[in-house]
Design a protein around this nucleic acid. Structure first.
Lengths: 234, 234
DNA sequence: TTTCATGGATCAGAAACTAAACCATTGCGG
DNA sequence: CCGCAATGGTTTAGTTTCTGATCCATGAAA
């Protein structure tokens, strides 16, 4: 018997572009106020026409993810930190339970990926982790720290050499859209960096116990963050 | 910075229909030789035109997933058991490593889902599991047993009340496409049913230890199955 | 043999997308 | 101050995909 017959929902090309850009903003890969490539270049990269790309930009602008300015030095700019944090909080408080489930999924797949990565990570992934660590140390604001964390976690996921797990982690990070940390204390930041460093070292040394220990700390911090937000929103 | 800029790949409507039907054949929900609904009805359910649906059927026919017959009592019929098993083996032996990774992903998410389900499963999911068990007991051939197993596992995944985990399990089951068991011994079949029964009982009783025990057995059987296939293919 | 539910084929029109041009705005260097 | 050059904004003609409808062809069952 055929199961779950529901109308198909073909995604228009402009919708795919919206999703891709939105996901990168959610996961922090695109920084606040960052300028996107010119329309002609972006549409080229995406393999879609400029008209279609512009539809996508219009949607993102409407949803306050970007703003578009004309003229030389114009272009599409990611919204600023406060606006994005506001969007993130709104998204979470609209459906707090859903965000908890995303964290659940992220923790499950991220932890599994890290365990596999302890055996399978290659030099390329370790290098990406070190680069992310360097970014994290040099970062002087919350967005750059978030970006570096995302890059680190994606590198760990890639280390598992399992495309489905990588996609799962990527999806979860894109779905989450946590607001930027407020009032970052120097000590807390240093502690976070230390945990990622510990995870890198454990993966480098193929020390499974330490990998799990570091992941437990990261997962606990993640749960703490999401709980803090859902509480303050209530 | 923008990361991973690649050409977008808009999926045409007919492609979505192909995927949906192919996935249900892979996971065993659609039985061999089963007749699909008439084109006019199917296109209606999918919310696409009949012409577009027919494109999808043509693709599936080309790939030997179905065959189409004309006339009264005609229609699109899922290929027979041997043909499907052949397709499945071919798919696995083309990329054995990929199939192992799918199993990995399935085990990770299925196990996590079962753990959550131990606390969250509702009466609806328990009922679906019992119905699947009944199907499994009454099944007198491999396809029906596979169908019942899939239905049971999907019910467990739903019990976790986490849409992302459910989707992960569903994706993995659809991606796997295991051939039907050959030479089924009555004892082995009875043992399998017993394990699913044990999993149901454990979920019903919220007995987490027993849930994990049953899942371990199921996961081990899954690993055994995929290893047996990849070996015989080599 | 007739019936009729089914797949097969065709066509006009709608919707999405493309390619290419041209216009409007604006910062920057001369 | 002006004009260049890079950018977004707009228009148009044409292609591709999908739709909705109609009619034809087949073949099992009554």
């Amino acid at each position: 018997m055929l199961w779950g017959l529901r109308p198909l929902e073909p995604k228009a090309a402009y919708g795919l572009a919206v999703d891709l850009l939105q996901r990168q903003i959610h996961s922090g890969l695109l920084l606040p106020q960052e300028r996107l490539p010119a329309e002609r270049q972006l549409s080229d990269k995406f393999g879609i026409s400029r008209v279609t790309l512009r539809e996508a930009l219009r949607v993102l602008e409407t949803n306050q993810y970007i703003s578009v300015r004309r003229g030389a030095q114009g272009g599409a700019f990611v919204s600023d930190q406060d606006r994005l944090s506001q969007l993130a909080r709104r998204r979470i408080s609209r459906a707090p339970a859903a965000s908890m489930r995303v964290v659940e999924y992220l923790v499950v797949n991220q932890t599994a990926a890290a365990r596999f990565a302890a055996r399978r990570r290659g030099p390329a992934e370790l290098k990406k982790m070190r680069e992310a660590l360097a970014l994290m140390r040099n970062a002087d604001d919350a967005p750059r720290r978030k970006q570096a964390e995302t890059l680190f976690l994606l590198a760990v996921a890639d280390g598992a050499q399992n495309a489905l797990l990588s996609r799962g982690v990527e999806d979860a990070l894109a779905e989450l859209f946590l607001p930027f940390e407020t009032a970052p204390e120097a000590q807390s930041v240093a502690e976070t960096v230390a945990v990622y460093q510990r995870l890198h070292d454990a993966l480098d040394a193929e020390n499974l116990d330490d990998v799990e220990g570091a992941m437990d700390v990261l997962n606990a911090r993640l749960w703490g963050a999401i709980r803090r937000i859902t509480r303050s929103a209530a």
